Simulated scan of single mutants.
Amino acid sequence: MSISVAMSRITEPQINSASPSSGRKFNLPRQKEKVVVVMGATGTGKSRLSIDLATLFAAEIINSDKMQVYQGLDIVTNKITKEEQRGVPHHLLATHNPNSEFTATDFCESASLAIQSIRSRDQLPIIVGGSNSYIEALIDDDDYKFRSRYDLCCLWVDVSMPVLHTYVGERVDEMLENGMVNEVRAFFNPKGDYSRGIRKAIGVPEFDEYFRKEWLIGDEERRERLVREAVRQVKENTCKLARRQLGKIQRLRNVKRWKIHRIDATPVFRKRGEEADEAWKKMVADPSAMIVAKFLYNFSTPNVGGGGLRLSSSALQSAIATVTC
């Protein structure tokens, strides 16, 4: 199973576009424009998958993480770096004042404008983030008429909770090594409001006690104990967040009956290094690309352009068989 990319990224076919190899014309109805959503609990690799898809298809990304929309605290909020973005345009990422309040209504209005802007450039909008309440508001609120305007493809990157909890702990330790404490210290305010703006982010209120006491405690060991306790709380609260996010996705799928393609990434997170990268491609990136290709092109064996996206029917069926639809 392989996916190759031509010099330029793949764009959606036009109505009655012809296949270069066969000369056949495909009558592709385009009553609605298309949008892809990548969801999942924190730490499951949503941003990575969105970049994989955006570098294959002609796409731009809309961030739907309610903390990553704010400027600052890049380590704590785990923002994707410029290098990791690989040149893919991002919207609503580090765009708002960290002391302001960015509500679900603000997100719906901003995301709607971003979708229209992206579509005006004939690009595919990919919405990605863990704030499922924001995504639900955008898609199901009648005020925004999303479902009457767009066809939707939802991908859910899922990792079993015990495996994800282990990974979350490792990620917090890595954040600590990368300077999380000093980053949060710059935002510390004894009179700060932890119910507003970026100070709501996990990793900020947990260090409040440490920052209040660190200059009053002369004993280095006691200061280290305060740091360890703050880190423990960060890990615990992040795991709680992951469980809440999972519950919301399951509600959207099982109660509201959203059609969501589940991609099980658990085996990937049990591996390390090159083995993990190979497993990601085989078990997450390739199956997701094939689902999106089928969604965009409306036929089972897309063959677009000379050397563009080439997916055999057997490869497509094999990949989709690994996905719980």
Rank of each mutant, 00 (worst) to 15 (best):
F146V: 06
T266M: 02
A114E: 04
G203Y: 04
D151N: 05
R185D: 11
K46L: 01
E60M: 05
P162L: 05
I291W: 07
G72W: 10
L296M: 09
N303K: 12
V268H: 09
R270G: 09
F207V: 00
K145W: 11
I75F: 10
P89D: 01
I126D: 02
R185M: 09
G23V: 04
F146R: 08
E206G: 01
D277L: 14
S50Y: 00
C325M: 09
S64Y: 04
S4V: 11
P125F: 07
R48F: 11
E206F: 00
I118Y: 02
N63G: 01
V168I: 15
S160F: 00
D173S: 13
D141Y: 03
M7K: 12
R225D: 13
S22P: 00
A279K: 03
C154H: 12
R251L: 06
S17A: 15
A6D: 11
K25V: 12
S17L: 13
H165I: 09
I249R: 01
I15P: 07
C153A: 05
E221M: 08
M175S: 09
N298H: 14
K82M: 10
Y144P: 13
A315T: 14
Q31N: 12
R199F: 09
T44L: 04
E221L: 11
S312T: 10
W215K: 15
R257E: 12
R272D: 08
I217F: 00
N78Y: 02
T105D: 12
A230H: 02
G307R: 06
A242L: 00
T103L: 00
S314A: 11
